[in-house]
Write a protein that binds this DNA or RNA. Structure first.
Lengths: 196, 196, 196, 196
DNA sequence: GATGAATGAGGTTTCATTCAT
DNA sequence: AATGAATGAAACCTCATTCAT
């Protein structure tokens, strides 16, 4: 019984993994159900045992995407020197991006949110959690350094997130920029936002 | 003859205006040629007199989009106090975004660039022009203020653009943030990047 | 052993009851096997233990339907005053119909018979039995009243059945007609057909 | 322009004729759009220029069907001896039916009305017109014969229509009945209903 | 220049049926 | 006996594109 349920879940993830790949490469609406099925190693019809329709798959992908960001933020929260970890993560983000990670999917999600209310709601809910988490993390990090609480915490968080999201965009428009030069400026900008 | 050509161009723009609207609302792949035609007040078939196919329309939209950004940058170039103008423009951008301007289209373009090589090339070409222009503008602005040339000019430009693009993303994920709080932090961040 | 067989039969009827419901509500082709399964409280696959395929279920439903009519006729046969019972039954039929009984299924069967030879054969076989039974019943009823045998018995039976089937149709097209007014005319028409 | 519109209408009817055929032979839900298209000598996609979806075609067929009955009733209205014409028409109806005319379609419509509210509404609207027309016709016919108006006109009309619709059903269940025998009984029954 | 009828491929989705467990 | 995962064909429908007028 347990195995059975596990198997179901595994099969579900099989679909989601395949879907993420397809969506990355061809977009939500460019990828066809038969492409998904082929990529998932499953018949088209059977995908509908696990997902009500294509939009439900999109929603599940968005949910995963959101969870991933939250997980990253959570991992930061338990670092020893939080502020430094945040700044370090910035660099990693850059490298990852260069390796062509999930940029495409992130942009796809954002573009879809623009016209799909269900996706928009998920994106906004996720973002609310994420930015609250970031704010807490910053506050905790500053406290650990003996810095005063910030009156403009919300705005600073917003700008910091914007920076990161913006770098995702930059990675599409201008991937050729030297990483270390960027990292230096990024780090100093973040320091300015986090430690003053 | 001249009138004739003008008329043709006007008809062309009629299509592009309609296309921009449709693409904003439904995405490149979600908008159908017949929707475009209806929005443009023109028959489906006739659109093919002006554009070889749908992709050509997308390309033209992307081109326009790129040109718009360049125009904005150019307008800055002739300001009296360039650095201040840049910072001011940040605020405008925020307000515009709130009004739900072209965010959707920008994201659509970026997502499309991710998988359409032709679009990617256009986006990157445009971006190259834009960031060079910004670099020049910054240099000129600093010179007018008597500040020294920047060794890390490229990286700073990159971060500045990232900030702006990031705010476009933020506008989708979290449109409810108070503008003036953001603007203050944004301005101080830009000052830090431009004037030190 | 006997219990086992009984259980099988009960399961079978469970399917047929569910099928009748589904077919009534959605039609033979509109009802899916998985709907049937859900309504029968049984897995899709298991239905195939009892019925070779969907058409076999349809056939069984048709058979039941035919049997039901025959049973009604048989019950009439043992009434004391047969002719009066026939006429009375007309009224009941009307009321039943109003309550939206099996009209839908009857029409579904008839429509299906139109294109499914197997169903057509069943319907016609059943009808042959039914109309012969009715003819006998009429003859017996007339004899009990001391009336002479009818030379045009077959045609009269036919018209009487037509009247009843027609009222089923009317119930769909015009359910709002006052029952008692109809019943009066119906009764006098039947009297004319049965007692003269 | 006129020609153009005519052509469109002709093409529309081309679809409806084909659809009527297909629906008769395979039922509303048994006939596929590609069958319709083949029968109409037209591509599947193009049918959707004329009809929004399959249901719209069904609706149009039902409308035609209703109109046909109304036309028949109207033609009776201008006969010299209306009552006699009504009775005569009964015979014709029988013959027609034997030739396997529209019985199948009529039953299909009725069965569909049972579960499709839009079709039900059309059927009922059509029937209201038809039975009012019949009532008027009967009244006029009786007046021409110098007979008194009927107090139970509505109920009698109802029974008369039921007879005709019932004969349509009978034609499926028992087509082998000798026509003239039936016609005699039918005629006498109608006389009883119309002329007394 | 301008229309819209026409096509056919391909999209998402549903479904009867099978089969390993 | 009983399940439900799995399939693949076929359903309805949409769409970019072409072409005669």
């Amino acid at each position: 019984m347990k195995t059975e349920q596990d198997r179901g879940e595994a099969r579900c993830n099989q679909v989601l993994d395949a879907a993420a790949d397809c969506f990355r490469q061809r977009g939500f609406h460019g990828a066809s159900m038969s492409e998904l099925a082929k990529a998932a190693g499953m018949s088209v019809g059977h995908i509908y045992h696990y997902f009500e329709n294509k939009e439900a798959i999109i929603a599940a992908i968005v949910e995963r995407d959101v969870a991933e960001i939250l997980a990253l933020l959570d991992s930061l929260h338990d670092e020893e020197d939080i502020l430094q970890a945040l700044i370090r993560e910035a660099g990693n983000n850059l490298e990852e991006a260069t390796c062509g990670s999930d940029d495409a999917l992130q942009l796809e999600v954002l573009a879809e949110a623009t016209r799909n209310p269900k996706v928009l709601a998920m994106v906004r809910d996720g973002d609310r959690l994420a930015r609250n988490r970031l704010a807490e993390t910053i506050t905790k990090g500053r406290a650990m350094r003996g810095l005063a609480p910030l009156a403009d915490l919300e705005a600073r968080s917003e700008i910091i997130i914007a920076l990161f999201e913006g770098l995702t965009c930059r990675n599409v428009r201008n991937p050729g920029v030297p990483l270390d030069a960027i990292a230096t400026v990024l780090r100093s900008t973040l320091q300015n936002l986090l430690e003053t």
